[in-house]
Design a protein around this nucleic acid. Structure first.
Length: 476
RNA sequence: GGCGGUGUAGCCAAGUGGUAAGGCAGAGGUCUGCAAAACCUUAAUCGUCGGUUCGAGUCCGACCCCCGCCUCCA
């Protein structure tokens, strides 16, 4: 299995620290708003990766944090006249609802920065003791240049970083810092009503980057297998995490750094982001789009590539899901009917090949496009087989199980896809179909078509096959 | 300016140097009473220019377009 490592800018053979187990940390959102499609992309990308590891038999420890205190949180809470913790609670709840709707597996742990203040203070103190950090009037800064590997992840050189940073910070900050690229580990309280905790350096709150170093090492260990996040976190966030963690522990922080590509929008394909105000929240879009369609759309692009968010592309995802649905439905009908089973070497071999191709593609840095292609290639074979008067029922069943597990890597629940929800009108549907079959027998096409139209209005599509009339619900 | 990514048919997109996978849409056909679904057939010389090579989308050079990071952002 190969994974592209941002640190080395190469695909590397994946080797877990502990065989059969994987430790994964994924940077989560700042919870001052609903998550948008771009945030969801990251969540979905790493959920898909996690699910594939699990498919391969790994046990995955998956930690994803909530940043529940920072300037944006403080400002938003003020604007709404609420407190930072209340604001956080509200949007953490919304996050869990949204990601649950997108069928994202629950993290092993969702630590919150504000619940880790003690550990954060201890960690910062360690950095001060080791000479990697210094305090100035209640603020604590990290001495970036002291860390020899600073800039390696994002491939930036120190001089240029200094030049860039000096343009962005004000004189007052410039004077406090030893160097413009030094970054805050601890920020002193500025207003009396501002949320703050006691510390050896006075009242204040943690800086942004420190929480991830603390939570990752605390819950997953000094060195972990995989650390993920959006490409925009490469610098400075992840660069700083490496500096903090490796300075504190003296060990390698992360073996494989993985960064997902952005969601872009519009004909200019601009990055979707909160600051550009071109975002769509998951909360809103799910009011009109089937969560499975959104999930499949986002999961079907390889995690490093950009996703161009558009109605047309969303529509395409829906059509493909429908093909899966049709195939699975026709398999279900064939498995349930009383026709004889007949072994098919052709089908068996095609299914075997598909599995091989699917896994080879996923093993290659999660190349989901090629993995899906493997499935698209076998669908015509399966569909054609499912139309035969005698089918290989054992092999069809086997394929169905495989397809279920493959699609579940993409976050698709095939049960939901094909559910013939038991509802009060099931009996009515079957009665109508019987009536129609009767009409067809008598070649009473007008009556037959009338019943079909009526069923269509109920959201039921019917298909006539040699094995009898089938029906599916249009919406799941 | 520095770093990184990207440019393949209307759209999505795969492509270890050897005569361009696949999907969607479109067109034609088979099946069907008609449909639906399914199945079959069907399209591009790969941003531009030059180089290396028997041979390049695939390597080298130059250039152009777009996107991102370098400041909060998945």
């Amino acid at each position: 299995m190969k994974i592209y490592n941002t640190l080395t800018r190469k695909k590397e053979k994946f080797k877990a620290i502990h065989p059969g187990q994987i430790t994964m940390y994924v940077c989560g959102p700042t919870v001052y708003n609903y998550i948008h499609i771009g945030n969801a992309r990251s969540v979905i990308a790493f959920d898909t990766i996690r699910r594939y590891f699990e498919y391969k038999g790994y046990k995955v420890k998956y930690v994803s944090n909530f940043t529940d205190v920072d300037d944006k949180m403080i400002n938003e809470a003020r604007a709404e006249g609420t407190t930072v913790p209340k604001l956080a609670d509200r949007f953490i709840k919304a996050y869990l609802e949204d990601t649950n709707a997108l069928n994202v597996e629950k993290a092993t742990l969702h630590p919150r920065a504000t619940h880790e203040i003690k550990s954060i203070i201890t960690f910062i103190q360690k950095l001060i003791d080791k000479g990697y950090a210094y305090e100035v009037d209640g603020d604590v800064y990290y001495r970036a240049k002291k860390f020899a590997h600073y800039g390696e992840l994002s491939d930036q050189n120190i001089a240029q970083l200094e030049e860039g940073a000096s343009k962005h910070i004000n004189d007052e900050e410039q004077q406090r810092k030893e160097d413009p690229i030094d970054f805050a580990l601890w920020k002193a309280q500025k207003e009396p009503d501002e949320i703050a905790w006691e510390s050896p350096w006075g009242k204040g709150r943690p800086g942004w980057h420190i929480e991830c170093s603390v939570m990752s090492t605390k819950y997953l260990g000094d060195t972990i297998d995989i650390h993920g996040g959006g490409q925009d976190l490469e610098f400075p966030h992840h660069e700083n995490e490496i500096a903090q963690s490796e300075a504190a522990t003296g060990k390698k922080f992360v073996n494989y750094w993985m960064h997902n590509g952005f969601v872009t929008v519009g004909k200019d394909q601009e990055k979707m982001s909160k600051s550009l105000h071109n975002f769509v929240t998951v909360h809103d879009i799910l009011k009109r789009v089937d969560p499975q369609v959104l999930r499949f759309f986002m999961a079907s692009v390889q995690y490093r590539r950009q996703i161009n968010y558009s109605e047309e592309n969303l529509k395409q995802a829906e059509i493909i899901l429908n093909r899966f649905k049709n195939t699975l439905t026709s398999i279900d009908y064939r498995l349930a009917d009383d026709t004889e089973s007949a072994a098919s070497a052709e089908l068996k071999q095609a299914v075997q090949e598909t599995q091989k191709h699917f896994e080879a593609a996923m093993d290659d840095d999660f190349n989901v496009q090629n993995a899906l292609t493997a499935i698209y290639d076998v669908l015509p074979v399966v569909n054609a087989n499912a139309n035969l008067s005698k089918v290989d029922k054992g092999e069809l069943k086997h394929f169905k199980e495989l397809l279920n597990s493959w699609l579940s890597i993409f976050g698709i629940d095939t049960k939901k896809l094909t559910a013939k929800v038991t509802s009060p009108d099931n009996e009515k549907i079957n009665t109508l179909i019987k009536m129609r079959d009767e009409a067809r027998k008598n070649k009473n096409w007008a009556a037959s078509d009338q019943i079909r139209d009526r069923l269509k209005r109920m959201g039921i599509t019917i298909q006539d096959t040699p094995q009898g009339t089938r029906w599916t619900r249009d919406e799941n």
